[in-house]
């Protein structure tokens, strides 16, 4: 298979996967439902924050932690950790991350091929993008694995 065709096919496979994973991601993290805390639930959690030590106390005093508005649904650590206890959710989030990185990197490659015709410049930009992709993958997976494991 030619490299162009492989890139074309990969962009479609990762793109189709991302449509599913991102729809799921937007649903559980950005829409009001049981994966987020309701305003009442969150305000009960905020009331507990004061007992968790000086870091929380300072954040509450400076407004870096604050109560929910009426009708607001809030992402909170305990809800995220509870969801990520499920290995399927962990796998889905890692897939979302890796598909996103692969799709983005291949997209950057396509843009460079269209606009940057100097070989060395293209190589440099692609090298920086590739390093960024590795960084995002490693840091993202490390964060996902750390949730709920006490790291």
């Amino acid at each position: 298979m030619k490299a162009y065709a492989a890139g074309w096919l990969m962009q479609r496979i990762t793109g189709a996967g991302l449509v599913l994973f991102l729809a799921l991601h937007l649903w559980v993290q950005h829409m009001p439902n049981g994966f987020l805390a309701t305003a009442d639930e969150y305000n009960r959690i905020v009331a507990e924050f004061a007992d968790r030590g000086p870091v929380y106390e300072e954040a509450l005093a400076s407004g870096h932690l604050r109560e929910a508005l009426d009708g607001e649904h809030v992402i909170t650590y305990s809800k995220v950790a509870a969801r990520l206890q499920n290995p399927w959710w962990k796998a889905i989030n890692i897939m979302l991350l890796l598909f996103g990185v692969a799709h983005g990197l291949n997209g950057v490659h396509n843009v460079l091929r269209d606009y940057v015709h100097r070989g060395r410049l293209r190589l440099i930009v692609m090298g920086i993008a590739s390093l960024g992709a590795v960084w995002v993958s490693v840091v993202g997976i490390r964060s996902l694995l750390a949730v709920g494991s006490g790291l």
Binding site: A59, I75, T76, W135, V139, G140, S143
Partner: peptide, 27 residues
């Protein structure tokens, strides 16, 4: 979206510290 992804993942490093994550979400 390519520019947003690294920002998002950088912010989510706070997942390794519950107090930091709550403040990240509040921001």
């Amino acid at each position: 979206l390519v520019l947003y992804l690294p920002l998002h993942v950088a912010g989510l490093r706070s997942l390794q510290d519950p107090a930091a994550f709550e403040q990240y979400v509040t921001l």
